[in-house]
């Protein structure tokens, strides 16, 4: 799997996103991370492995206390392209909307009484 796919599949889970949200305020141990969830430590560890594989988190080397910390780079990559692409479409659509508004303003003649006949291409607003 390429890196971006790895990032997205890791993020496509509410528990893992919650773990990341927690880690965004600082490193934490597995026990600390597990506390808010009603799941076993092994289940939490499994989620951490997925996050680690996607390089979204890194774990300390100390045998006893292996704190997890968030790694921003893949996250930023993922959000960057999404945001840019989203903006691209939003700006494109804004322009279409402007055009449609202009068109309707042009088509709207000086207030004459509406005729019952419907114009094929006209605005019926």
């Amino acid at each position: 799997m390429d890196r971006l796919s790895l990032t997205f599949s890791a993020l496509a889970d509410p528990t893992r996103r919650a773990i990341l949200a927690r880690l965004s305020s600082g490193p934490a141990s597995v026990n600390e991370l597990a506390a808010p969830f009603s799941m076993s430590l092994p289940a939490v560890s499994k989620h951490l492995k997925v996050l680690e594989r996607a390089q979204l988190i890194a774990r300390g080397k100390e045998a006893q206390w292996r704190p997890c910390e968030i790694k921003a780079a893949p996250l930023k990559e993922a959000t960057d392209w999404m945001e840019q692409y989203r903006q691209f479409w939003e700006e494109r659509f804004d322009r279409l909307e402007e055009y449609l508004k202009e068109l309707q303003a042009q088509e709207k003649p000086a207030p004459v009484k509406a005729t019952p006949k419907r114009k094929k291409n006209g605005s019926n607003k």
Partner: peptide, 28 residues
């Protein structure tokens, strides 16, 4: 593929934008 999506960014329409996890959550 997801790589194709990355290349859309390489087109360079806009640069830089940081987002919190909350917004990311909304997008996904």
């Amino acid at each position: 593929s997801a790589q194709d999506l990355e290349q859309i960014v390489a087109m360079g329409f806009k640069e830089g934008f940081t987002m919190g996890l909350d917004q990311l959550d909304e997008l996904l």
